[in-house]
């Protein structure tokens, strides 16, 4: 079954506006591709999107997005290029920031939210790919403070936000601390060469669903 549309993220799972969701699982389990595919579907369904990249450049993301990429509705915060070259220029739709400058990232997310809001767009999706990169450079307390403000803003604006976290890169305390900030989690696992996904929240836990991942996207079977 193809992934759902609009606020529906998995069969039988819909999200309320203002939700902050953690995307959690081991490396190569399909988290990033799942999240991108979902992001693209939300955008196709009329959402405006903000994608925060910490592992690849804006240009690589746009290449993946393909011809459907529209700079009016998809804004990117590229936290890779500036760390490498220092002289990359911003555009209306692409803002560059170093991954450690949380104030810069926060201000840029807000500028995009303001832009969407002023144009009358109220359906907004935000993806942060990934928190694990932040945690490589900054301590948990600092990242927590940043997320405390960001998740609050997502609630206020009625956006829907997803934050990718790598399983196995952080200790249990880190994961437990981060979980406090989120309304639910999309969890991934790999078993016998097969990939699975499920949704977990304080009120719901779905069964594990098998997924197929390739460069083009994710299919839920």
């Amino acid at each position: 079954m193809n992934m759902g549309v609009q606020e529906s993220i998995l069969p039988g799972v819909s999200l309320k506006k203002g939700s902050n969701i953690m995307i959690y699982g081991p490396t190569f389990a399909g988290k990033a591709m799942f999240t991108r595919t979902m992001f693209k579907k939300f955008v196709k369904a009329g959402y405006c999107g903000i994608y925060v990249l910490t592992r690849e450049s804006a240009e690589q993301f746009i290449d993946w997005f393909g011809e459907e990429y529209d700079s009016n509705t998809v804004k990117i915060i590229d936290c890779v290029t500036k760390s490498m070259t220092g002289d990359a220029k911003d555009t209306e739709a692409i803002k560059r920031e170093t991954v450690m400058n949380l104030t810069g990232i926060s201000a840029k997310i807000n500028k995009f939210l303001e832009e969407f809001w002023r144009k009358g767009n109220r359906n907004i999706i935000l993806v942060f790919d990934s928190l694990s990169t932040l945690l490589m450079y900054l301590n948990l307390q600092t990242v927590f403070r940043f997320l405390h403000i960001l998740t609050g803003r997502v609630k206020m604006t009625g956006a829907i936000a997803f934050y990718i976290v790598e399983e196995g890169m952080h200790d249990e305390k880190t994961i437990v601390t981060l979980k406090q900030l989120f309304n639910g989690m999309i969890e991934f696992k790999e078993e016998n060469g097969k990939k699975f996904v499920r949704f977990v929240s304080p009120f719901t836990k779905t069964d594990w669903l098998e997924i197929h991942v390739d460069e083009g996207g994710v299919i839920i079977t």
Partner: peptide, 9 residues
């Protein structure tokens, strides 16, 4: 003294 969501640098 800068609000965390404002470009104050």
């Amino acid at each position: 003294w800068i609000n965390p969501e404002v470009e104050g640098d």
